[in-house]
Design a protein around this nucleic acid. Structure first.
Length: 837
RNA sequence: GCCGAGGUGGUGAAAUGGCAAACACACUAGCUUUAGGAGCUAGCGCUUGAAAGAGCUUGUGGGUUCAAGUCCCACCCUCGGCACCA
């Protein structure tokens, strides 16, 4: 028999599968649906990355297994093709971005097909297709109509050399991610999406009963931290001899009797409103100007040293004890979080403590670790206690209140409840919930993005483009160079910019900002369900918002992707889906039922793969040298799926060798087992037990994404088969079937070589027989005082007594017991016996 | 600092509280081959020993248990994320 040659065989089966449409999903099939999703790639000029294929292989295995389990499986692929590298290339070479995109997607498609991912290519989508972004724009208009898209003046990151606005994620260490040049902050009107309106639901729906999402726990934790929900209270403080009031936000109302001053952010309105009252105004203004000039980076660098200035000439009044406290302005209090003002309790807050120490402010403890610290008066009521006064360290935990008036003696938890009740009765404050999550900056000053479908009319203001006029297409441009003014290159195309206002028909201008990268990927899982006229050529394709189809397929049953998308993409797309659900455009409130993530593949040197390091592994090279099957198998075998792992160039040789051995087994297969006797033997032998154990292990390991151990158990089975003189066809076919989702080509070839006319992927996934997993005998481990001294092959389910008798006969055991008495026997059925002497 | 993941042979790693190192890679020796390569067979944690064996071994230190890589407590280190969020 010839050795296995992947070169001829892989292409042959890829064509066969495509021709027979084995990978296509059927809308409204009676079989149960299963929607597998992986993150669609940005088609960069560098081609497919091994990191992409780790995730795609894993989901491909799951998709193939589900098909064999009888599901109507949808496993789609497309292109998230708007992006900066393409635009930069266009600027440099003067080529239209769509030309580059076409070239890159063609390359990606070829690469993906060479790896035999069972994508339904009839549903291929592209975010830069005007027919696609028509709907991205449509969703934006719906958000706008509901008031969730709004314009807001805010500082953006500006790259001085690229002359372009950058999103926060495009700025690394204060430098432009692309050119490495210096960036600065500039004020600009930006489009924002009010994701914070959904913050509570995005948090709550992660867990039952509302959502009950099957996300990896660490993904939930990261989402929750990013949303950053915190419950607390807003408390009103008055300014002495003034009608001015302001709110502070705190999560620790219980500590308020320890408040010795208040701090406001430099942006706080108190400064402009009570300007005349501030005695040291020039000092205060100087401080505020300095704070403003600090970039985020500088503020971070300087974070260890807290600074601030007292607003002299005013005092704030603590509503609980009517005490006058001083007011400070300090930039460690953030203007954009909470109310921009805090009550400072140095005894119970690290930051306040540090600030108080630096400026010599009083520290007063009002919560103690336990009530023993409290003193009581003759009637048993808590009084002023010894804990008051200066402290050497601050106590941030919950405890028992002291020196807190009527609330003294309560625990922190009780006090929070009681004090909020008191505040609400007196109308001096209320319970509130705050989030760290901020609204989503949604404009970019780039060319290669979805135009925001809004017209600026001098009379009517912001007017949405009528839905019938969508999509607002990107115009052809000669130069993609950004302008000096911080506007998108689109602003220079007057023919495109100048339009009639849809409302009053007067002269108006189009919005020239485009949407960020995240827009197209925030709803792409729905787009796969909307493509129609799939059979005809691309030009006749259209996307139809067919709610019945969405209802059939949604939600995504299993979504795998990178951990780096947990906070942005995952949250953004959950937000859009919830919004679409609210306007009855999407059938489910959550888009993804289950979310898992894979670890990064590092270069052979253990570092992140990058061109500059020269440690990039090209999938094409691997496929041509070892074949797609060996490549896929190695990716699954290399280590735990969720863990970062360096690529070992030798590792793929191991899986390639393994496939060669499976191939060689073919010549040892007996087509019909000849005698009854043989058959009987094969039904009950050790190999049969192993076979059923392997079915169980591989089936379970795939479900829990322990692909590495699934592969190793297949290796064990194949090694065992190699030792047999003769292998039953049925047994061999089970091995091949279990292997087929991992290594589809070679398995299909073996399957057909054994005379099967239909594809192996139309077969049923094997089931194990729990009776056959039982072994007849096992190796009984014999321990003396917890140390292994001997082992013996014993019949399964041997009784403790029989095991004991066997054990005491063994020379080694006798030697170690010597003349001591056996005091205790520990017997674990079908495992071990331990004699304590 | 906070949150998360992790620390086991030369390497990637495996191990429902029950024989630590399965399965691979690399390495060594042998067979085979005109050669390169591939394939096959055997060995392969450390110490000691000719061998049988004995002792030691899962980041460190304690603890629970007949029995701990696994459970509990404290600490050290590595990686990823966040960044004064009151």
């Amino acid at each position: 028999m010839n050795p296995y040659s992947h070169k001829k065989i892989e292409k042959k089966w890829q064509k066969y599968w495509e021709k027979n449409k084995l990978d296509q999903a059927k809308d409204f099939s009676k079989r149960p649906k299963y929607y597998c999703l992986v993150e669609f790639p940005y088609p960069s000029g560098d081609g497919l990355h091994v990191g992409h294929t780790r995730s795609y292989t894993a989901m491909d295995i799951i998709a193939r297994k589900r098909r064999m389990q009888g599901y109507n499986v949808l496993y789609p692929m497309g292109w998230d093709a708007f992006g900066l590298p393409t635009e930069n290339y266009a600027i440099k070479k003067g080529v239209h971005p769509s030309v580059i995109t076409k070239k890159n997607t063609d390359n990606f498609r070829r690469q993906l097909k060479s790896l035999a991912f069972s994508f339904d290519w009839s549903r291929e989508i592209n975010t830069t297709d005007p027919k696609y972004y028509k709907w991205t724009q449509w969703i934006f208009l719906q958000l706008f109509k509901k008031g969730l898209a709004y314009k807001h003046k805010m500082p953006i990151n500006w790259c001085l050399s690229c002359k372009v606005g950058l999103a926060n994620e495009e700025v690394v260490d204060g430098k432009c991610e692309r050119c490495g040049g210096q960036t600065e902050k500039r004020e600009k009107e930006q489009w924002m999406l009010a994701i914070t309106k959904y913050a509570d639901r995005l948090d709550k729906d992660l867990d039952p009963p509302a959502g009950g999402l099957d996300y990896l726990e660490k993904i939930k934790i990261q989402q929750r931290n990013w949303i950053g929900k915190s419950e607390g209270a807003e408390i009103e403080f008055k300014i002495q001899d003034s009608s001015f009031k302001f709110q502070v936000f705190t999560t620790r109302v219980d500590t308020i009797f320890g408040c010795t001053y208040v701090v406001v952010a430099p942006e706080h309105e108190i400064i402009s409103k009570l300007k005349s009252q501030i005695l040291n105004l020039s000092e205060v203004e100087k401080y505020i100007n300095e704070a403003k000039r600090k970039s985020d980076l500088q503020r971070t660098e300087l974070q260890k040293e807290k600074t601030g200035v007292e607003l002299k000439g005013m005092k704030a009044i603590n509503p609980f004890n009517n005490e006058e406290v001083s007011v400070f302005v300090a930039d460690y209090v953030l203007g954009h979080y909470g109310t921009g003002a805090v009550m400072a309790v140095p005894a119970h807050d690290e930051r306040d403590f540090e600030f108080a120490k630096k400026y010599g402010l009083p520290v007063r403890q009002s919560v103690a670790r336990n009530s023993n610290f409290l003193r009581t008066d003759d009637e048993g009521n808590p009084t002023k206690s010894e804990i008051s006064g200066s402290l050497s360290e601050c106590f941030v935990e919950d405890g028992v209140l002291a020196d807190s008036g009527q609330f003294s003696g309560l625990t922190s938890a009780e006090a929070c409840g009681e004090m909020v009740k008191w505040l609400e009765e007196k109308k001096l404050g209320k319970k509130v919930v705050k989030f760290h999550l901020r609204d989503w900056v949604f404009s970019r000053q780039h060319y290669w993005g979805e135009p925001i479908p809004i017209v600026n009319c001098p009379k009517c203001g912001l007017v949405p483009v009528p839905e019938k006029d969508l999509p607002v297409k990107l115009p052809d441009v000669k130069k993609y160079e950004p302008t000096d003014t911080g506007e998108s290159p689109l602003a220079a195309i007057l023919k495109w910019v100048n339009v009639k206002c849809p409302k009053c028909k007067g002269p108006a201008k189009r919005e020239t900002d485009t949407m960020p990268n995240w827009a197209g990927s925030s709803w792409y899982y729905l787009a796969y369900l909307m493509l129609e006229n799939k059979k005809s050529n691309l030009k006749n394709q259209k996307y139809v918002w067919d709610k019945k189809k969405l209802k059939y397929w949604m939600p995504v049953d299993w979504y795998n992707g990178g951990m780096e998308h947990t906070t942005l993409h995952l949250l953004y797309s959950r937000f859009w889906n919830k919004f679409l659900f609210d306007i009855k455009a999407a059938p489910t409130s959550e888009p993804y039922k289950k979310r898992t993530s894979h670890g990064m593949i590092l270069g052979p040197d253990g570092e992140k793969m990058s061109k500059s390091r020269g440690n990039v592994i090209n999938p094409d090279d691997m496929v041509s040298a070892y074949g797609a099957d060996a490549y896929r198998l190695y990716q699954m075998f290399m280590g735990p799926f969720d863990q970062a792992i360096p690529w070992d160039p030798k590792g793929i040789e191991g899986t390639s060798r393994f496939l060669g051995r499976v191939w060689k087994l073919l010549s040892a297969v007996s087509y019909q087992s000849s005698t009854k006797e043989q058959k009987l033997k094969a039904e009950s032998g050790k190999l049969k037990t192993l076979l059923h154990k392997t079915i169980k292990k591989v089936s379970e390991d795939i479900e829990s994404m322990r692909f590495n151990t699934a592969v190793s158990s297949l290796m064990i089975l194949s090694n065992e088969m190699e030792k047999q003189e003769e292998i039953l066809t049925t047994d061999y076919l089970i091995l091949v079937t279990l292997l087929s989702p991992f290594a589809p080509h070679i398995c299909e070839e073996i399957w057909s070589k054994l005379g099967n006319k239909k594809s192996i992927f139309l077969e049923k996934w094997p089931k194990f027989d729990s009776q056959k997993i039982r072994e007849d005998s096992f190796e009984l481990v014999m321990q003396v005082n917890g140390k292994v001294r001997d082992r013996f092959e014993a019949p399964t389910d041997i009784s403790e007594n029989d095991a004991m008798l066997l054990t005491l006969k063994r020379e080694n055991v006798k030697k170690w017991i010597g003349d001591k008495q056996v005091k205790k026997v520990i017997f674990i059925q079908n495992k071990l016996i331990n004699l304590i002497a």
